[in-house]
Structure formats: structure tokens, C-alpha cells
Amino acid sequence: MSSRPIFGRLPSRRGILAAGVALGSAGRLLPARAALAAETVTFEGLYKSFGVLGLEFSDRIVALKDRAVRIEGYMAPPLKPESDFFVLTREPLAICPFCQSDADWPLDIVVVYLRGVSPLVSAGSRVAVSGRLELGSFTDGKTGFVSQLRVVDAAYGTA
């Protein structure tokens, strides 16, 4: 966990980039068929290997690509009270990467793109997210933020 002090004046590049992550995917529609049969996935089951030279998705995650999934985790402290995206983490973050320019995200985050702008009042709370699983390197055109695993067209509720 980061032990770096708060840096109050200069904006966080990572924070700004992360804040813009949802811009490219707002307005996507959730296929009705997928919504009916959401497969539950867990943080523990996302990867089959963690190596110095990279991670590997588990076979099940690869098989669930573009299908409806449900995953529980903790909402990272959001940058704004309302947004169309947030970051889901395995454990509650003891720090707020959005708030601190020098705090960093864990490797196994799930970026959640909501169907529309929603109030995000559950920072630190355990939530359940349902949506379509998207895999692969995605670079946001406007911000350059890179993500590898996303739940898109998503909705969430208290777990």
C-alpha cells in the first residue's frame, strides 16, 4: 500500500486519466439476452497467473468475454459524487487514488462503466455489479487511460 504523502496542488495525471475512463463507452446498450443469465465471477477467479512480465486471465474469464456477468467488490472512492463509471476493487482501498496524485491502483481492479450517470455514494461499501464483461486493452481516446478488464452497460446495488 502506498505510503506517500498527499500532494495537494498539482493535479494527478492518473486521477485525471482515470476520471475520464468512461467517456468512450457511455450509451452502450445491454443485450437483453445477456442480462437474463448473468454469470457470477469473483476477483479471485479473474486471473490464472500473476507474473513479473504480466498477468493472464483465467480460462473462465476468457470464456465469459462479452457475456453478462455479476461481480462483487468494493467501490473505490470516486472523484465526483455522480458519474457514469467507478472502479471496483477486491478490498476496500485504504487510500483514495482519485484523491492523491501519488496513490496507485491495485493491479486487479475492474473498471465499471454504468449505463448512465448515477450517484456514487457507496465509496468503501461492498457492491454487486452486473453488466457485460469486456476484455482487452482499451485506450480511452480522450484521456489515454488504459484498461484491460471492464464491466460495461452496468448497474450496481448494495451487495
Binding site: M1, P77, P92, L93, A94, C96, V121, G124
Partner: peptide, 14 residues
């Protein structure tokens, strides 16, 4: 595992 002394208060920023 390493201690996590404090966690975010749900619903409150920072």
C-alpha cells in the same frame, strides 16, 4: 497480513 489500520468511511469522500 500487513495491517490496514483505517479504511474509507462509506459514503464520505476522503
Amino acid at each position: 497480513g500487513e495491517n490496514v489500520p483505517a479504511v474509507p468511511v462509506p459514503g464520505k469522500r476522503n
